[in-house]
Design a protein around this nucleic acid. Structure first.
Lengths: 139, 139
DNA sequence: ACACATATATGCCTGAGACATATATAGGGA
DNA sequence: TCCCTATATATGTCTCAGGCATATATGTGT
């Protein structure tokens, strides 16, 4: 079923893919995070990969594929623009910045995330109301 | 790309599957919702389908498949138990109740959802800090 | 020469979820 | 009787996001 030796682990339960037990994902959450980071400061993928940890993305080993693919998709959709930067040392970097369409998308995400937060809050209220009763879920 | 005539619609943006534009999902969120509802009051699938709306599940037309499959999976994992109820009129109902393992799972979910909420809050803080600057995402 | 950090890109596979459909029971109306 | 609807459960198919692996290239240090 779903067993590793890292303590709490539930069958198909609250976990990342294949039982990482780090929490259920908010779908596509990486998208608004990338947009926000890029609005704060234009950057390239490898840099964003590091900075994503600040949003709770499992820092230990970030997946480059995830980051780069999302950036390319956002570019295809006109949400970000990129240009090669060969000025520094090392391999060329693709410098991204957000377009005005991308700003609109982030605004939309803002609303979505507020709504999402409200949903989780509603759940927790109800969950804690239940826990206050005798038949608490933890006991 | 992603266009319908229902107003706000972003390419692959904040939306349910295939551009429903109703908000990005929290993965597997239906699971803790079902457990919580069943702890509040044992019930059958069709009933739960209705009650799920209270958690923000797109009420208009709820998907029975989603509900029933999740219930059966939870039962296979020993998180809930069911028995047929043929007492009432109409077709037989499968009455579900939560097991002690299921309660533990809900407790774990509680922690996950609190963490998730914190992540969204952190994002929103940072998002609003940016919006306070001149280069606000919406303007 | 070799290892390593930096940097980008692509391929494969799985699981959740959206959508459609099948099946059965019972009640009401034409 | 036949049909429509509400109630109730179950299953098939397809797509997409994400996890994991891998390929490629450049510069630095030893």
């Amino acid at each position: 079923m779903c067993s590793d030796d890292r303590g709490q682990c539930y069958p198909h339960g609250p976990g990342q893919h294949r039982c990482d037990c780090a929490g259920s994902r908010v779908e596509r959450f990486i998208e608004p995070c990338l947009l926000l980071l890029l609005l704060e400061k234009p950057a390239h993928g490898y840099d964003l990969m590091e900075r994503l940890r600040e949003f709770g993305f499992d820092g230990e080993d970030q997946d480059p594929g995830m980051v780069y693919r999302n950036l390319r998709r956002l570019e295809n959709q006109g949400m970000v623009e990129s240009e090669w930067d060969t000025s520094g040392p090392g391999p060329a970097k693709r410098l991204y910045q957000v377009t005005s369409e991308g700003r609109d998308l982030l605004t939309a995400w803002g609303a979505v995330i507020r709504r999402n937060k409200a949903t989780l809050e509603k759940f927790l209220e109800r969950y804690e109301a239940l826990a206050g009763r005798s038949d608490t879920p933890s006991g």
